[in-house]
Amino acid sequence: MTDTLTRQTTTAPAAPPRRRRRTTRTAWVLRLIALAYILALVALPVASVVQHTFADGLGPVLDVLRSPDFLAALRLTLEVAGIAVLLNTIFGVGMALLLTRYRFPGRRLMSAVIDLPVSISPVVVGVALILVYGTYGWFGPALERAGFQIIFAVPGMVLATVLVSLPLVLREVVPTLEEAGLEQEQAAQSLGANAWQRFRRITLPTIRWALAYGVALSLARSLGEFGAVRVVSGSVAGTSQTLTLYVNDSYQEFGPDAQRQAFAAAFVLMAIAVSLIVVIAALRPDQEKS
């Protein structure tokens, strides 16, 4: 009896190491597959585009970055993305407050409608805008008579950009607002704080990180939008060409100069995108901490 007991205790500790070693081997295989996949799909291509951009050194890249077409594209991109992010931040925060603090019929439908544009093709988004605000669209002729051009102009590009990033701020802010509840605000109100004071002193500090995260996401999306803007812009170099369109149009032209332009502009967009995700990654833990 004692003999079997001791034998059991001696064999029992021997088993786990064997099992652990086996899972370690599986873990190794899984790790290898995962890393190889990410390397082949994302890391290597991204690295090779950087290498390709600077293949002839820094000079030619700087020449592109100083060219008038590039600068015009950069300016337009910043302008369109800036307005779009501003509109989506105001809309996102306002709508998040309404959705979390009030109950009204159609609330769920409204929430679904806000999510829809990011789930459909950007080309469909662009075409939809053309069919309403374009020359032959529902409101296009009336707007044109009144002197407003939307499609093939900056307003159309802004609308397209707003649509493809519509819920990003809202979706970040809503969970934080829901979690925070209303008690603090009600306390402030009972102490005589007005709406602006309550928003600035209580709501804003509560949603600060979520808002920053949402804004960074919207900015990344807005700066990089291609499909929807491509449909409504007309893409004329120097006037209605954003950076993404500049990359596309340069690449479609043949010749080493055009290629160099495409890669230099793509590198700029990539550098912006990567710095934004680093910022976003830095914001995320902060948001969880608070």
Partner: peptide, 16 residues
Amino acid sequence: IIDIPFALPTIVAGLV
């Protein structure tokens, strides 16, 4: 790196 595809403009993704 996992987040790069979401952050990268689609046209740049194609070029990459």
